[in-house]
Design a protein around this nucleic acid. Structure first.
Lengths: 150, 150
DNA sequence: CTTCCTGCAAAACATTTGCAGACTT
DNA sequence: AAGTCTGCAAATGTTTTGCAGGAAG
């Protein structure tokens, strides 16, 4: 859960005895260069092919898996048939996602209000809760406007 | 958004000029018989094959799609690699899901507190929000207990 | 009767895996 | 040098689609 810099992450890989390969670095760079973009494996692959045309899609998948296991990336699902990834939130500081039902755009939204709900849910159900995910579905300002015009 | 009875749903199909076929009825019956179970297409297929051994998996998929389009079923994703379905909630009355990270069990939880959060998010972001989905991840009472014992 | 539905088989996708060679440490 | 990591190709699992026959309205 350190900062999301190339150095810090490579250090973490090194500390855990994972090798710091050029492929892994180039994939990390893709996320650093596309912050807040919720990239899919295929998208990462396309970005990364420009610096390393030899890279294989399987390597991208394996690296995304690894980075998600290390909690450097977070794997998420926006109901578009593929997994997407973004840097994991620092500590408990969550953000949630607003998904536009028209254009598919994903916007982010900060909120800590869910922590208290989490505690309440734990008490009521007996679950020990370690995480939560919230998605809002609606229409973004642009699409909402054009819909209203119809 | 009517009640979830065979009659009401067949009526709705009829009203929208969809044919009421035995396959569709048998699939609906599977959901009526397995309320609150979040069935996957494959699971529906296996249930339904007992009454209609001739049915095809493709028909199950097409029917689930149709019922989700009509907002009779809701398609959901519990990160287990397949879509799952349950009856769509009546009106605005949502329930949320608690997913056990150990055994995969899904529990339900009623709460309306999110409605106010929804309004706040709408105001802050300019989205017009039509729905939301909340998932909590943790350990159910049984799994939590055995984990504590280790 | 007309049109929509169905079952089958094949196709389409996203993701995973086996393996031999290449590279990090 | 040892063990991990990579690229490729093949395999997997889920979901979709084309088509010809069959059934609902």
């Amino acid at each position: 859960m350190g900062p999301h810099t190339m150095e810090a992450i490579c250090q973490k890989l090194h500390d855990k005895a994972y090798k710091v390969t050029p492929q892994r670095q180039v994939i990390l760079k893709a996320f650093l260069d596309h912050a807040q973009e919720h990239l899919s494996a295929e998208e990462v692959y396309n970005i990364v092919k420009e610096s390393d045309p030899e890279i294989g899609l399987a390597t991208v998948y394996r690296t995304l898996d690894l980075l998600a296991d290390l909690e450097i990336l977070e794997k998420m699902n926006f109901d578009d048939g593929r997994s997407r990834y973004e840097f994991a939130g620092e500590e408990e500081h969550h953000h949630h996602h607003l998904i536009c039902l028209e254009c598919g755009k994903v916007m982010e939204f900060e909120d800590d209000l869910l922590e208290s709900l989490e505690a309440m849910v734990a008490k009521k159900t007996g679950f020990s809760i370690v995480d939560h995910q919230v998605k809002f579905y609606g229409f973004c300002p642009q699409c909402g406007r054009s819909r209203a015009a119809n």
